[in-house]
């Protein structure tokens, strides 16, 4: 029985032919006299055979949109390569900059640093999304799905009921180590980003940065920011709307 325990870990590599010849022979010798281990090996082999047989069908094709977005990404240019890395594309520069400031931003009290990071993420998402479609989910459904996927309840306000506004999606921001919820709305032909950050303290900010208007505020529990390529008054109106909606809670 102790032999079984000793060899237990080797049964999978045995089936996969990944053991050195002497170990392979030792397992074979044991299997001849041990029916339970033979069953284990058979289960391993059956599973392996099944998965290999179905591999093509299990591995579903990447959606066209994803393939297009990935194909649009570029490598660093050859001159950039020699200098280790230098952004060749907007996306790359966004990544690079965020890499430098992200961690700082979450603990910093600087609204400006935070706004800069979020503006970068807003620009990146907008650029990579290529005309983001209107979401197929209602904000409440999207919030429920987000809570289910990430264990984090985020209030997702409905789109502002004024001119031509629609909810697009809520996603977890890949930067800031995933601790930011990014809600996107379409307002006319522009994309408006609402960020929800589990950071209690952040001084209010209202600034132009990277060609975007950014406003950030905190309700003492979380920090919010709106980033949009829209005039200041328009962003102020949106801020008014969203802060009222968010104050109502999820």
């Amino acid at each position: 029985m102790s032999k079984c325990r000793e060899l237990e870990e080797r049964l999978a590599p045995f089936v996969d032919g990944e053991l050195p010849p002497d170990a392979q022979a030792e397992v074979e010798g044991h299997l001849e006299k041990c029916p339970p281990c033979r069953d284990t090996v058979r289960a391993q082999a059956d599973c392996r055979a099944l998965l290999r047989d179905r591999a093509a069908r299990l591995r579903c094709a990447a959606p066209d949109g994803l393939v297009a977005r990935c194909s649009a990404l570029k490598c660093g240019s050859s001159s950039a390569r020699r200098r280790t890395w230098l952004p060749a594309t907007l996306a790359a520069s966004v990544l690079l900059t965020l890499g430098g400031v992200t961690l700082y931003g979450l603990t910093a009290t600087s609204g400006r640093v935070l706004a800069a990071q979020l503006a970068l993420d807003h620009v990146k998402c907008r650029t990579l999304q290529h005309d983001p479609p209107a979401g197929t989910l209602e904000p409440t459904e999207a919030a429920a799905r987000f809570a289910r996927d990430y264990g984090w309840k985020v209030a997702v306000p409905a789109a502002p009921p004024d001119e031509d506004a629609r909810f697009i999606c809520v996603r977890r921001c890949m930067y800031m180590r995933g601790r930011v919820a990014h809600v996107m709305y379409g307002v006319g032909d522009r994309v408006v980003s609402l960020f929800v950050i589990p950071l209690a303290e952040s001084p209010p900010a209202d600034l132009a940065i990277l060609g975007q208007r950014a406003r950030a505020w905190s309700d003492g529990r979380q920090t919010y920011a709106i980033i949009a390529d829209l005039p200041q008054e328009r962003v102020a109106r949106l801020t008014q709307y969203f802060s009222t909606e968010l104050a109502r809670g999820p």
Binding site: A62, G65, L66, C75, G76, C169, R172
Partner: peptide
């Protein structure tokens, strides 16, 4: 998709992987 069990997150993950891979191509 197997890791995230969520199509949107899986797409994000793949896109992010390519971003990093292309940046680290050298």
């Amino acid at each position: 998709l197997r890791l995230t069990r969520n199509r949107a997150t899986a797409e994000d993950l793949v896109q992010e992987t390519y971003l990093r891979a292309f940046q680290a191509a050298s």
